[in-house]
């Protein structure tokens, strides 16, 4: 079976800073995988490199539903079936969410009626109706932004989705809600990689596999028990066990903050 997402030997640099040092990962259709790791380990970089953000110098292979996407433009990757839900979705004043959705439908060459129905249904299900006329992410709370990302994901119907910390900064009820939304998306047409710093969200969903990234490498992969192990030990102990030494590579844990 062709997996939804297959990542092989992905490396990425930002200037001289080597961030991803060879990442391999496979998410089959119908599955939800979690990618965990401390701040600064390269999780967001992996998302951006898969999506094709041009500030990184990247190499390796990434296939979405069997189609190689490395080397494609960002929009071509989206149209190939890849979706990135952002850790920090950018505000776009003056452009309403509805305008964006209409452009997404056109860009994807969807039938406007069918696409419109899909938007309506997803908006109702996710309680997004009041946000459709508002500017994209502008003035939205953290939770609302994440919900808007999930809404766009539901409308886009990708083959592979990478969800970057859709749980961070949320209170426990919102985390549970997002977990429910991710589980509701589970289908044979989609593979999900959900990225999280904390194992908290994994209590409300059932990931098929859990991967741990440290210093730009996947250092552990296994069943849900990996998350439990991590919760018990913490990243530092795992680091020590793996002989990686303390996190002293000068990574700024806040570099990622907007």
């Amino acid at each position: 079976m062709t997996p939804a997402l297959k990542v092989e030997g992905v490396r990425a640099k930002l200037g001289d800073l080597e961030i991803l040092k060879g990442v391999d990962l496979e998410v089959p259709f119908g599955e939800i995988h979690a990618l965990m790791g401390p701040n600064g380990s390269g999780k967001s970089t992996l998302c951006h490199v898969l999506m094709g953000k041009d500030e990184y110098a990247a190499e390796g292979s990434a296939a979405v539903g069997g189609r190689e996407v490395m080397g494609l433009d960002v929009d071509e990757r989206a149209r190939a079936g890849l979706f990135e839900a952002f850790q920090y979705p950018v505000e776009i004043p003056g452009v309403s969410l509805d305008e964006l959705l209409a452009e997404m439908g056109e860009a994807a060459g969807r039938d406007p009626h069918e696409f419109g129905d899909r938007v309506e249904r997803a908006a109702t299900r996710l309680g997004m109706a009041p946000f459709r006329d508002r500017a994209i992410n502008s003035g939205l709370s953290g939770g609302e932004k994440k919900r808007s990302e999930m809404f766009q994901l539901a409308v886009a119907r990708p083959k592979a989705a990478v969800l970057d910390e859709v749980d961070s900064g949320l209170d426990i009820d919102a985390v549970r809600e997002i977990a429910g939304l991710v589980e509701a998306l589970r289908s044979e047409e989609l593979g999900v990689l959900i990225i999280t710093h904390y194992s908290r969200i994994l209590r409300y969903m059932a990931p098929d596999r859990v991967h741990v990234m440290i210093d730009g490498r996947i250092v552990r992969s296994g069943g849900p028990e990996v998350a439990e192990e991590l919760e018990a030990k913490g990243y530092e102990e795992l680091r020590a066990e793996l002989g990686l030494g303390p996190n002293d590579d000068g990574a700024d844990p806040y570099a990622d903050l907007p």
Binding site: M51, K53, D73, V74, D75, R77, A78, R79, F83, E84, F86, P89, V90, I92, V95, E99, L100, E103, M104, A107, A108, Q152, A156
Partner: peptide, 18 residues
């Protein structure tokens, strides 16, 4: 903003216009 819009499938020219 440009990257975000392109990640939603809009080509560069469409994203710029928006």
């Amino acid at each position: 903003q440009h990257y975000y819009l392109m990640s939603r499938g809009l080509d560069g020219a469409r994203a710029d216009r928006l």
